[in-house]
Design a protein around this nucleic acid. Structure first.
Lengths: 100, 100
DNA sequence: ATTAAACATAGACGCTTATCTATATGAAGT
DNA sequence: ACTTCATATAGATAAGCGTCTATGTTTAAT
């Protein structure tokens, strides 16, 4: 498995505020201003977090008028779950190259 | 869900070298010197990584003579998978508090 | 055309992290 | 006792991260 790539996905997720953003988006698409209401930090900070989530392929954005609509990428979730499985399980791709 | 706690677990995992360590341990218990053979960094660096994994409850250690035997904590894996599920799924604990 | 609202970018600051070298500890063999 | 092997700790350094304030950009309404 590609540790570098999986590491980037994990780092994008492993911030408490971004975890909450993902949790919020798991219910459906939201715009930035709706997201911001759930947090104590400033708008530029949200913008920064959303950029990180987008660059990691976790969230997609779409402008609708003045608003940015953010959506969880289902393809990311599938790939992520796949990586978690192969990481913890003693599969044929295991780094130790042992016979299972 | 406890974002702070899940964030700590994720941060402990989200380093490419620690991912590889976990992958290696998914095949079974290994000592530090066996682990070290798979990496380019120095022994103190491995020691540092193992400490982080232990403090996060991901790995347990047991001295056997001169060697430290490291084992993946199955309880961690169960809890981690649980957190991943509740994060991505629109469950009753979702941060948006919407009716499902 | 102006203004206001929603969002992005730039730059700065303090904190954390991954790595290294040097050294300490601890167990086992001679 | 001394040495050797396996591992841990201490301290330093450079890079990355999360947050802020200040400012820019874009869209829509008046």
């Amino acid at each position: 498995m590609d540790y570098e790539n999986f590491s980037k996905q994990l780092k994008a997720i492993s911030d408490p505020n971004r975890l909450k953003i993902i949790d919020l988006l798991s219910c459906g698409t939201l715009c930035a201003c709706d997201l911001l209401e759930h947090f104590e930090f400033t708008q530029p900070t949200l913008s920064h977090h959303m950029k990180i989530l987008q660059e990691a392929g976790i969230v997609s954005a779409k402008r609708v008028g003045k608003w940015q609509h953010y959506t969880l990428e289902s393809s990311f979730i599938a790939g992520f779950n796949n990586n978690v499985s192969t990481l913890f399980e003693n599969g044929p791709e295991c780094a130790c190259h042992c016979k299972k």
